[in-house]
Simulated assay, not measured.
Amino acid sequence: MQVIPLTPTPSQSLTVLLGGQNVGLVLRQRSTGLYADITLNGKLIYAGVICQDRTLLVNRPYLGMKGDLVFVDQQGKTDSDPTYDGLGSRYVLYWIEPGEAIP
Score class of each variant (00 low, 15 high):
17 L>A: 12
18 L>F: 07
82 P>G: 02
15 T>P: 04
8 P>Q: 01
83 T>N: 12
66 K>C: 13
62 Y>P: 01
29 Q>W: 11
76 G>E: 11
68 D>Q: 07
84 Y>P: 05
93 L>Y: 10
76 G>Q: 02
79 D>R: 15
57 L>W: 05
73 D>E: 05
69 L>S: 05
7 T>Q: 14
30 R>C: 06
11 S>D: 14
49 V>N: 09
7 T>L: 14
97 E>G: 06
57 L>E: 00
36 A>G: 00
58 V>R: 11
60 R>L: 15
5 P>R: 06
72 V>M: 08
21 Q>A: 10
94 Y>M: 02
66 K>I: 09
13 S>T: 02
14 L>D: 03
65 M>Y: 07
48 G>I: 02
32 T>F: 03
96 I>K: 10
53 D>Q: 11
69 L>K: 03
48 G>H: 06
45 I>E: 07
23 V>D: 02
31 S>F: 15
65 M>D: 02
40 L>I: 07
37 D>K: 07
93 L>R: 08
58 V>L: 10
11 S>W: 10
19 G>P: 00
42 G>L: 10
72 V>C: 02
53 D>R: 04
52 Q>I: 01
94 Y>F: 15
19 G>Q: 04
47 A>E: 08
96 I>S: 12
56 L>P: 06
78 T>N: 11
7 T>R: 12
77 K>F: 12
66 K>M: 12
60 R>E: 11
8 P>E: 08
97 E>R: 11
55 T>M: 12
39 T>L: 05
50 I>K: 11
39 T>A: 02
13 S>A: 14
5 P>I: 04
65 M>G: 00
88 G>A: 12
80 S>H: 12
26 V>T: 03
73 D>L: 10
92 V>F: 09
72 V>H: 05
64 G>F: 04
60 R>W: 03
2 Q>K: 12
76 G>R: 15
59 N>W: 06
35 Y>E: 07
59 N>G: 11
85 D>H: 15
87 L>T: 00
27 L>P: 01
81 D>F: 09
18 L>I: 00
79 D>T: 14
14 L>N: 00
76 G>S: 08
12 Q>P: 03
76 G>A: 08
33 G>N: 06
14 L>G: 09
103 P>K: 15
3 V>K: 11
13 S>H: 06
28 R>G: 02
29 Q>T: 04
7 T>D: 14
86 G>L: 09
1 M>P: 07
48 G>S: 14
83 T>C: 06
90 R>E: 01
101 A>K: 15
37 D>E: 03
86 G>A: 15
22 N>T: 05
75 Q>H: 14
64 G>R: 13
9 T>L: 01
59 N>R: 10
35 Y>P: 00
63 L>N: 08
58 V>D: 04
44 L>F: 06
45 I>M: 05
51 C>D: 01
42 G>F: 07
62 Y>K: 13
42 G>T: 08
28 R>Y: 01
102 I>P: 00
73 D>T: 03
17 L>K: 05
23 V>P: 00
80 S>C: 15
100 E>Y: 06
74 Q>S: 14
93 L>S: 02
41 N>D: 15
36 A>W: 01
34 L>A: 04
47 A>P: 05
4 I>Q: 04
94 Y>R: 06
43 K>Q: 13
74 Q>W: 15
